[in-house]
Amino acid sequence: MSSTKYILGLFDDPDVMMHGIDKLQKNSISIYDVYTPMPIHGIDAKLGVRESRLGYAAFMFGCLGGTVIFSIIYYFLVHDWPMNIGGKPYFAIPDFVPATFEWTVLFTAFGMSFTFFYATHLFPGRAPRVMDLRATDDRFVIAIDAKTNVPHEDITNILKEAGAVEVKHNTRKYVSYE
Rank of each mutant, 00 (worst) to 15 (best):
M112T: 07
H79F: 13
A164Y: 14
I7F: 03
I40D: 00
G42W: 12
D154S: 07
F61H: 06
E178Q: 13
F96T: 01
G163V: 12
D12Y: 13
E102P: 07
V16W: 14
H41T: 11
S71R: 04
R53W: 11
N27P: 08
I72A: 02
T100H: 05
E166A: 09
G111M: 10
D145M: 04
D132M: 11
F114A: 05
M131V: 14
K168L: 15
P14V: 09
F123I: 11
L159H: 09
L64H: 10
M60R: 10
D13C: 08
A119N: 15
E51K: 15
V105Y: 08
I29C: 02
P82R: 01
K5Y: 06
F116Y: 12
D138H: 14
D145A: 04
I7S: 01
D95R: 05
R134K: 12
L77E: 01
T36C: 15
G42M: 07
N149G: 05
S176P: 06
T156K: 13
T148M: 09
K147N: 10
H169Y: 13
F70R: 09
A164Q: 05
S3H: 12
N149V: 08
I144H: 06
T4Q: 08
K147T: 08
L106V: 12
V130A: 06
D44N: 15
L24I: 10
K173C: 02
I29A: 07
G163I: 12
I40K: 07
L24V: 06
F59G: 15
M38P: 07
T108P: 06
Q25G: 02
A92K: 05
I93A: 00
V49T: 14
Y118F: 15
G55N: 09
I69N: 01
Y90D: 02
P39N: 04
V130H: 10
M1L: 09
T67P: 06
M17A: 04
E166P: 11
V130P: 10
D145I: 08
D13P: 00
G86Q: 01
M112E: 01
I73E: 03
I93F: 10
I72P: 02
E102L: 11
I155L: 07
G125I: 12
V141W: 08
K147Q: 13
P89Q: 12
I40T: 05
A164K: 14
R134D: 04
D33S: 13
